[in-house]
Nucleic acid binder design. Structure first.
Length: 273
DNA sequence: AAACAGGCCTAAA
DNA sequence: TTTAGGCCTGTT
């Protein structure tokens, strides 16, 4: 393991690596034996660790300022956000339990593609398919003597065929990946433009694509388009809502913080049932 | 062995 | 507008 520069990520409030990387929003960060996490995001490989109360990530201060600051959503004060979603005793418990979660600002295309893959799959298989996709079609990057691969851009996937994607073993999702790649590459689906849209319009645009339904659309919108009112509902969330809001429930009570409220509910449900 | 897994699509009421 | 069944594949 060669020498590698590290820079502190300064954060005044919530920042729990395990919760951030394991609350279901991303698929490419993996925990090492020492509790650090290594992953590839936004075209670069990095390792991030906690020592005492401080967080360190490989890279220069400029990397932190220009890349990781935005990725880890450091401009938002999660302590006050947690207070804002405490609408009842259940949400108080869930947000206390989930303290340390942050919603990452991920690459739009990577998020779209990853959540297409996620449908009707378990996490280990999702991660495996995504890693194969990157190894086969991404660019190699190096970190501390190890080789990693970036997530291939839509322009790399668009010209491929279903046979080319057979190595992924992702079954019926392959044509969905191709059509999404082609739409993004051609500009027919403009994810950057959509990040300035409202929830309704963003959902409509995404769900017009084959293989993108309500759940995948909401994940893409929340995790990469930065629209905080998105509220993805999967099987875990269905259980949580049925259990705690049998009379019915509307995410609108949380306004722009609905997505964060969802993350707390989801993580709480997965951890405690 | 048969069912299921962090959905989506189509057909049918 | 809601519901059932099928879908690739890998795991239990």
């Amino acid at each position: 393991m060669g020498y590698c520069q590290e820079t502190e990520i300064e954060t005044l409030d919530d920042f729990d690596l395990k919760k951030i990387f394991e609350c279901g929003q991303c698929f490419r960060w993996n925990e090492g034996p020492d509790g650090s996490y290594t992953g590839v995001a936004l075209g670069r490989a990095a390792r991030i660790r906690r020592e005492g109360g401080r967080i360190y990530i490989t890279g220069t201060p400029e990397d932190v300022e220009k890349v990781w600051h935005g990725y880890f959503d450091l401009d938002r004060d999660y302590r006050s956000l947690r207070r804002a979603v405490c609408v009842d005793d259940y949400m108080r418990a869930a947000s206390d339990f989930g303290a340390g979660i942050r919603i990452l600002n991920q690459d739009r295309w990577e998020t779209l593609c990853s959540f297409i893959i996620s449908q009707c799959n378990n996490i280990p298989r999702i991660k495996k398919i995504v890693e194969t996709l990157c190894r086969e079609f991404g660019d190699p990057v190096e970190l501390m003597g190890e080789r990693y691969y970036t997530f291939p851009g839509p322009e790399r996937i668009a010209p491929l065929s279903e046979e080319d994607l057979a190595v992924l073993r992702c079954g019926y999702r392959a044509p969905y990946i191709l059509s999404a790649a082609r739409a993004v590459d051609s500009g027919e689906l403009d994810l950057e433009e959509l990040s300035g849209a409202d929830l309704t319009r963003a959902k409509k645009a995404l769900m017009a694509m084959p293989g993108i339904g309500e759940k995948v659309a909401n994940c893409v919108i929340l995790f990469s388009l930065r629209i905080g009112s998105a509220f993805p509902i999967d099987v875990w969330m269905k259980k949580a809502l049925a259990q705690h809001y049998p009379e019915g429930f509307s995410p609108e009570v949380f306004g722009e913080n609905a997505g964060l409220a969802q993350q707390y509910m989801f993580y709480y449900q997965r951890s405690n049932g």
